[in-house]
């Protein structure tokens, strides 16, 4: 129960952060899907397959708190979860750069799809292109953090 409560709080916090920075970044034609990237990172880091019902419920919850159409995030999250689950074993063969590009493309697809649904009449390829570069760069930056700040673990004998 506590685990789910923590997840909900984390989702609310990340979504709040997402909405806070989106108005600033939109001045530079950038849409930065922080909530989506956080969710994909969660799925990617998960040791087991994420249940489609979990993806659906999280998506619906994000639809509710982000005031978008119901089902939009539920649909995207289900698809993304399925894709990541398919590639979960193949990621072992990928380099960090390839994984970063993969998530950059995913987030670009997310931006494009959401823009098509909620902002069809003002759809901008320039915004999509810049967002793609920005998201990929962000993923590379996050991956670089792992290299420069490796995780330390205790060795138990």
């Amino acid at each position: 129960m506590l685990k789910y409560f923590k997840k909900i709080l984390l989702i609310i916090f990340i979504n709040f952060l997402d909405q806070s920075i989106s108005s600033f970044l939109s001045n530079f034609y950038i849409i930065f899907p922080l909530t989506f990237l956080a969710y994909t990172f969660y799925v990617y880091r998960s040791d087991k397959n994420i249940n489609p019902s979990e993806a659906f419920v999280i998506g619906l919850f994000i639809d509710l708190i982000s005031e978008s159409y119901f089902g939009l995030h539920a649909l995207i999250f289900c698809v993304v979860t399925y894709i990541i689950n398919i590639y979960a074993n193949a990621f072992k063969l990928f380099s960090y750069l390839q994984i970063c590009i993969f998530f950059g493309v995913l987030s670009t697809a997310y931006v494009g799809f959401t823009q098509l649904i909620i902002n069809l009449y003002n759809f901008s390829y320039l915004m999509l292109f810049i967002s793609a570069i920005f998201c990929t760069t962000f993923c590379i930056f996050i991956a670089a953090l792992r290299v420069f700040f490796p995780k330390t673990s205790k060795i138990t004998i």
Binding site: S46, D47, K48, N49, A55, F56, G71, Y82, N85, F91
Partner: peptide, 26 residues
């Protein structure tokens, strides 16, 4: 890497939820 042992996705249930989501959004 994220997962050490191979995992398999449930295509049918994913398909169901994707269809459900699509219906809701429409």
């Amino acid at each position: 890497m994220a997962r050490i042992s191979p995992t398999f996705s449930k295509k049918i249930s994913f398909s169901l939820f994707i269809i459900l989501s699509t219906c809701i959004i429409i």
